[in-house]
């Protein structure tokens, strides 16, 4: 069962990711990104990371993609077909294929025999406790990052009088 779901979602992610980097339309690109992110969210659910999955939906899909679409509209990016690729496409293809080849061979060799068991239920409760006890330092740091990003985004995007 899990393997079937994984297979379908993986196919979706692969298709959407490839289309994202080849499409000639910016808005389509944002929608393909949305598909990849939604696929990842399903994978998180499958791997018993419920909370991460819903954060992915809320923050990534809800905020990030909407922000990107806003960005595209505010910059009045030409919607429709246009040349979006640079001259280095063949080189890029070679580099990324090489990285994929090396990385996938090595992870295949390393984790060949290991399988995941869908056993232990993970509750938000335990995750929350972990974040607010052991990982409280990174949590506090992230809060300052968000504050700085907020102030920074406002000061940059604001129109000067």
């Amino acid at each position: 069962m899990q393997q079937v779901v994984f297979g379908i979602v993986a196919a979706l992610i692969v298709f959407a990711a490839v289309r994202l980097v080849t499409t000639r339309n910016l808005v389509h690109g944002a929608l393909y990104l949305l598909a990849v992110l939604a696929g990842a969210a399903i994978l998180f659910l499958l791997f018993l990371a419920e909370f991460v999955a819903w954060v992915q939906v809320l923050v990534y899909i809800g905020a990030v993609v909407v922000l990107l679409l806003f960005g595209l509209m505010l910059t009045r990016a030409p919607i429709g077909n246009m040349a979006l690729d640079s001259q280095t496409r063949p080189l890029a293809a070679v580099v990324s294929l090489a990285i994929f080849g090396i990385t996938s061979t090595i992870v295949w060799k390393t984790f060949k025999g290991q399988t995941v068991h869908f056993s232990k239920p993970n509750t938000v409760d335990t995750l929350g406790r972990a974040i607010f006890s052991q990982y409280v330092l990174p949590f506090e740091i992230v809060s300052v990052v968000l504050l700085a990003a907020l102030v920074g985004a406002v000061v940059l995007a604001r129109k000067e009088e």
Binding site: Q2, Q3, F6, A10, I13, V14, A17, V18, L20, V21, L26, G29, V36, L43, F47, L68, G71, L72, T75, A77, L84, D85, S86, T88, R89, L91, A92, A93, V95, S96, L97, I99, F100, T103, S104, V107, W108, F111, K112, Q114, T115, V116, F118
Partner: peptide, 28 residues
Amino acid sequence: MPVAWVLILSSFLFSVGIYGVLARRNAV
């Protein structure tokens, strides 16, 4: 389920991302 399948998927996603960074010229 073999964990390697998932890792190969993520490696693929990573490599496609690299391709996009190198081949695209629109900042967004």
